[in-house]
Every structure is written in structure tokens, then in C-alpha cells.
Design a protein around this nucleic acid. Structure first.
Length: 262
DNA sequence: AGTACCACCTGACGGC
DNA sequence: TGCCGTCAGGTGGTAC
């Protein structure tokens, strides 16, 4: 799940359920999910405090505990949040559980343990240290074009490169290229400025559509790839046959009929 | 600078 | 039923 739109939906979920409640206890079910911190540090810094507000950057969600203390959540491939009351409702792979004083709990669930839970005293420093680019929802067209100017690689890997633009992952880069009629292996340097501008607009549009529809593909427009993103399916635009190709180690799905390599 | 490959992990699925 | 290979929306390190 967790690309920019998914994380934005998690943010809204956390904001609407878990802010301003006293956190009585932090339970660590699996410490492998922690990075650079110990179980004790996590408990000491959070127990007895409240989640004050949250902030998203790319695929990261940061939750403020107090002025110089933020919880870092990264969802990996399989992370998600669940707010619930009864233990019986606890998700199968709850790795960290925050217990609130009203009896409710917030679980950081992560089946594959590729997610990360950590702490930082400065979100901006963390973003800088990770060399994350500007968030895909915030970047302006001029900066986007400049960042892609003179790149030698493929357009899909550029879109997925978190140092260029933060937030776009495998699924949504496919969607953006599907909507702009470009083969995922097209070389960035072969793409003219007009087409790059189209990619920029499509990136914004796809992110917005996904967020507005709560990342539920069933609600997406009919001409979106997402519901048909598998080998052999019919392209929702022109009845081409969806194919798969490896691009920088990831599976890219595309319609060979209208996505041409340039 | 880019890319290919590996590692970190768990689990679902299809073929035999 | 079990075993095996492949795949899955992420990131980071290494070696070309």
C-alpha cells in the first residue's frame, strides 16, 4: 500500500482518531521494526505523552510528541495503521501498539517487517539526512523540470527516486506513465519539455485522485490502470494487452499499444 | 550517474 | 499434502 497517497490517508486516519489522547502504554510486539532506538527509549519518550499533530513527507509520516521529539513511521511494503478498542480486533501483524487512556489502541501493523519506527528531534534534519526530495504534492513545475533535466536513466526510475521527488512508488509511477502514454523505460533525455510537463500534471492528478478516493481502486476513474494492473488484462483505454517489464528491479506494468518507448 | 543484484522479511499462489 | 519458484505498493548497500 504505502506510497504517498496511502500515507496521506494514514495521516488523516491518525489525525481523526489518535491526537490529543494520553498515551498510557507503548507495547512493542516486535523490536525489529525499530531503527536506531531501543524499546526503552521509545517507551520513555512516548508513554505519558500525547500525539500533538502529524506531518507527512513523501512516504514518511511524522508524529509530534513534543517540540523536539517526533515519532517516525515508515510503512515499507505492508505497513498500515489500525485504531481499535478490543484486543480481539488487533490486526495480525501489529508490531507496535499505542494504548490510549480512553481504552482505544493504535497499532502499527506490518506483515513483512520492512517498515520502520523511530524517533527524531528534528524532522527537517531527518529529511535532509535521508536526502529526500520535495514532496510530490508540493513540488512546482519549474523545479520538477529542472530536476529531470539532463538525467540519463529511465523515466520510471526517475519518478520513483525519492531523492528527486518524494512519495511516488512502483504502483503510482506506473499509473502516471499509463496516463501520459509513455513506456516506463523511456529515457528521460528523450522526453521533450511539453511531455515532461504532462508527466508533472499527471503526477499531481494521480496523487489527488488516489487521495480523494481514499486509495480505493474501485472508486478510481474507469481509464486508470490500477484495477487492470496484471499481465494479460485488457487495457482500460484501448484494449491493448497489459505487459510487465523489469525497470530498476521492480515490475512495471504497461500497455504496449499506447505507451511507446522514446 | 545509472543500473543490476543482493539483503532485509513474511506470505500467497501456482505447478508438480 | 508438501515442496519449490515467483511474486508482492520499500529502502539501502555493493559492484560494475
Amino acid at each position: 500500500m504505502p506510497e504517498l497517497p496511502d500515507v496521506e490517508v494514514f495521516k488523516k486516519y491518525l489525525d481523526s482518531t489518535s491526537l490529543q489522547k494520553n498515551i498510557e502504554k507503548v507495547e512493542v510486539e516486535n523490536p525489529k521494526i525499530l531503527e536506531d532506538i531501543t524499546v526503552e527509549e521509545l517507551k520513555n519518550k512516548i508513554e505519558g505523552k500525547k500525539f500533538k499533530k502529524s506531518r507527512r513527507h513523501g512516504k514518511y509520516l511524522f508524529v509530534e510528541i513534543n517540540d523536539n521529539n517526533w515519532l517516525i513511521l515508515h510503512f515499507g511494503m505492508t505497513g498500515e495503521l489500525k485504531f481499535y478498542k478490543e484486543k480481539s480486533e488487533q490486526p495480525d501483524h501489529a508490531r507496535i501498539i499505542f494504548h490510549f487512556d480512553n481504552g482505544y489502541r493504535l497499532a502499527f501493523d506490518c506483515q513483512r517487517l520492512l517498515g520502520i519506527v523511530s524517533l527524531t528531534d528534528s524532522v527537517d534534519d531527518f529529511i535532509e539526512k535521508k536526502q529526500l526530495g520535495v514532496d510530490a504534492l508540493d513540488i512546482n513545475q519549474k523545479d520538477f523540470l529542472e530536476l529531470l533535466n539532463n538525467r540519463r536513466g529511465t523515466i520510471k526510475s526517475a519518478l520513483m527516486n525519492q531523492k528527486i521527488v518524494a512519495g511516488v512508488g512502483n504502483i503510482y509511477s506506473d499509473e502516471i506513465l499509463f496516463q501520459t502514454d509513455l513506456h516506463p523505460k523511456s529515457k528521460v533525455k528523450n522526453i521533450d519539455e511539453k511531455t515532461l510537463s504532462k508527466i508533472y500534471s499527471s503526477m499531481k492528478e494521480v496523487m489527488k485522485v488516489a487521495i480523494d478516493n481514499n486509495v480505493n481502486p474501485e472508486e478510481f476513474p474507469e481509464n486508470y490502470l490500477l484495477l487492470y494492473r496484471d499481465v494479460g488484462n485488457k487495457c482500460p483505454k484501448d484494449d491493448g494487452e497489459i505487459q510487465r517489464v523489469k525497470v530498476s528491479g521492480r515490475s512495471a506494468y504497461y500497455c504496449p499499444k499506447h505507451q511507446k518507448k522514446i
